[in-house]
C-alpha cells in the first residue's frame, strides 16, 4: 500500500511545474488549527514550516479540535489522553509554545455547531493576534475526513471575521481586540483531486526535516509501531531484499528508522521538484488576496512610514 502511495506522490511531483520558493512573511506569532493530534506533523505539510518559523524567531501554538478518541488501538479515553500527550511532545520537538485541546468528539463533528467551533478559533486569534495561521485547505476536494473539513471551514471564516468588532462583541468587552489574520498557509494531500493546488513552496533545512520526522514518529500511539516495522522487514525478506541499516534493530527501532526515511524522502522529493534541497508546499493566501481589485494598487502605492 505504502509503495503505491510512494509511486502516486512521486509521479505527481515529477509532473508538476516548480512553484515559487517564498520567504516567510514578516511577523512573530503563528497558530496551527487542526482537528487531530498529529495533523501538524504529517508528511504532506506543516511540521517543516513550523520548525522553520520557530527557527526564525516566531512563537506558535497548536489547536487540536478533536479528542482523537478513535485514533489508536486503545479505548476511547486512553487514546484521547495518550494522543494529547504525544501531541504536546511533538509540539515541543518542533519548538511550539503549547497545545490547546478543544476535545470535540473525534469523527462526530457534524453535530457541533460550526459557529461555535468558529468562535473558539476567533478567541484564540484575538488572544494571540497571529501573523500567520496554518491549517487544512477549506477548498480541498475529496478529503474523506469529516474533522478536516469541519475545522477547515471554521478556519476559513474565523481568520477574517475575527477582525470585525461586531463579531462576538463580548470578546471585545473582555479586552480582546479584533484582529484579522493576514496570511494563511493551507495544506491538503496533493493527490486528492484538483481542489487543492499549491501555489508556493517553502524551503527547509536538513535539521528542520529531522525535527519534522521526530515529531511525526513521536505519535507512537498511531505511527512507528513495532508491528509496522516487523511487517516491512518481513515483506523485504519475502521479496529477497535487505536493508542493512535495519540489521540488528528491534521492530520498534526499525519502524522509527523507516518513518524517518520516509519523511526525509518526501521532503527531499518536494524540494527537488521546486528547486530546493528540502521543501513543503502550500496554498498561501497573502495579505490582500481577498481584495483582488485593490491588491496591485495597494502593492504599488504603499510606502514605508
Amino acid at each position: 500500500m505504502k509503495r503505491w502511495l510512494f509511486l502516486a506522490v512521486a509521479s505527481f511531483l515529477q509532473a508538476a511545474e516548480p512553484l515559487p520558493l517564498v520567504e516567510l512573511p514578516k511577523g512573530q506569532t503563528f497558530l496551527v488549527f487542526q482537528p487531530h493530534h498529529d495533523d501538524h506533523t504529517t508528511d504532506y505539510g506543516m511540521g517543516g514550516l513550523i520548525a522553520r518559523l520557530v527557527d526564525e524567531g516566531w512563537k506558535g501554538w497548536f489547536l487540536r479540535a478533536s479528542n482523537d478518541e478513535k485514533d489508536g488501538a486503545a479505548s476511547y479515553g486512553v487514546n484521547d489522553q495518550v494522543n494529547l500527550r504525544e501531541s504536546q511532545a511533538a509540539g515541543k520537538v518542533l519548538g511550539m509554545e503549547g497545545v490547546y485541546s478543544m476535545s470535540w468528539r473525534n469523527d462526530y463533528m457534524d453535530s457541533i455547531p460550526l459557529l461555535e467551533l468558529r468562535e473558539q478559533l476567533i478567541v484564540l486569534i484575538r488572544k494571540h493576534r497571529p501573523d500567520v495561521v496554518l491549517g487544512h485547505d477549506p477548498w480541498a476536494h475529496y478529503d474523506r475526513n469529516p474533522d478536516h473539513r469541519k475545522v477547515a471551514r471554521a478556519l476559513a471564516e474565523a481568520t477574517w471575521m475575527s477582525g470585525l468588532a461586531n463579531v462576538h462583541p463580548e470578546h471585545v468587552a473582555l479586552g480582546l481586540r479584533p484582529h484579522r489574520v493576514p496570511v494563511l498557509f493551507l495544506k491538503a494531500r496533493w493527490d486528492y483531486g484538483r481542489g487543492h493546488e499549491a501555489n508556493v513552496a517553502v524551503s527547509l533545512t536538513a535539521e528542520q526535516v529531522r525535527r519534522k520526522a521526530i515529531a511525526y514518529q513521536t505519535h507512537r500511539n498511531v505511527y512507528a509501531s513495532p508491528a509496522m516495522g516487523a511487517s516491512i522487514c518481513k515483506q523485504l525478506e519475502a521479496e529477497g531484499l535487505t536493508a542493512t541499516e535495519l540489521d540488528g534493530l528491534s521492530d520498534g527501532d526499525a519502524a522509527v528508522r523507516i518513518e524517518e526515511w520516509y519523511m526525509d524522502w518526501i521532503s527531499r522529493k518536494v524540494g527537488a521538484a521546486n528547486g530546493a534541497k528540502y521543501a513543503e508546499i502550500y496554498y498561501r493566501v497573502a495579505e490582500f488576496d481577498h481584495l483582488p481589485g485593490l491588491k496591485s494598487y495597494l502593492e504599488k502605492s504603499q510606502l514605508k512610514k
Binding site: L291, L303, K304, K305
Partner: peptide, 18 residues
C-alpha cells in the same frame, strides 16, 4: 470599514497609503 481595515493593517506593519 474596508478602508479602515486596510489602513490599520498598513499602520500595524509600519506602512502607509498616501
Amino acid at each position: 470599514a474596508m478602508a479602515a481595515a486596510i489602513h490599520r493593517r498598513l499602520e500595524d506593519t509600519g506602512r502607509r497609503l498616501p
